[in-house]
Each structure stands twice: as C-alpha cells, then as structure tokens.
Amino acid sequence: MKGTLSIVGFGLSTIGPGTATGLIFAAYINGVARQPEARSILQPIAFLGFALAEALAIFGLVLAFVLK
C-alpha cells in the first residue's frame, strides 16, 4: 500500500459536506412538495446553503493537494 495521508483526510472531510448537501436538498424538496408556490423563496436559500457546504468540500480538496 502506498499513497498519501492527505487523500484519506480529504475522504474524511467530504463526509460532512456530503451529509449537509443531502439534508439541504431533502428540506428543499420537502418544502417545495408541500407548497409549490414557495419555490421562488426557497430556491435562493437552498443555493446559499449548498454553496456554503460545498465551499468546505472544495477547501478540503485544495488543502489535500497543497499540504505536504
């Protein structure tokens, strides 16, 4: 076995954002299904949450390459 520990770290760090993205879209779909006219209000909020959660994942990706 060979490889770097950074990749393992990146793998671990994707658990959080993955869970977060799932929860955000579960809530978004739930909301739209219950009240379709609320879509225009919910969509920006869902995108903001998605962007913030994804930012952490990409941070992890870059740090996995940068840190040696």
Binding site: S40, Q43, P44, L48, L52, A55, F59
Partner: peptide, 23 residues
C-alpha cells in the same frame, strides 16, 4: 489567498443566484 478566493466565489454566487434570484 485561499480565504480571499473563497469569499470571492461565495460573493459571485450571491450576486448571480441569490440577490437577483431567477423569478
């Protein structure tokens, strides 16, 4: 630079998708 870049990315997303949200 990474913090600045992250802030820039989030700011652009804010302008494109959230401030003037499509409909």
């Amino acid at each position: 630079g990474m913090f600045l870049g992250m802030a820039t990315g989030l700011y652009l997303i804010w302008i494109r998708f959230i401030k003037e949200s499509p409909k």
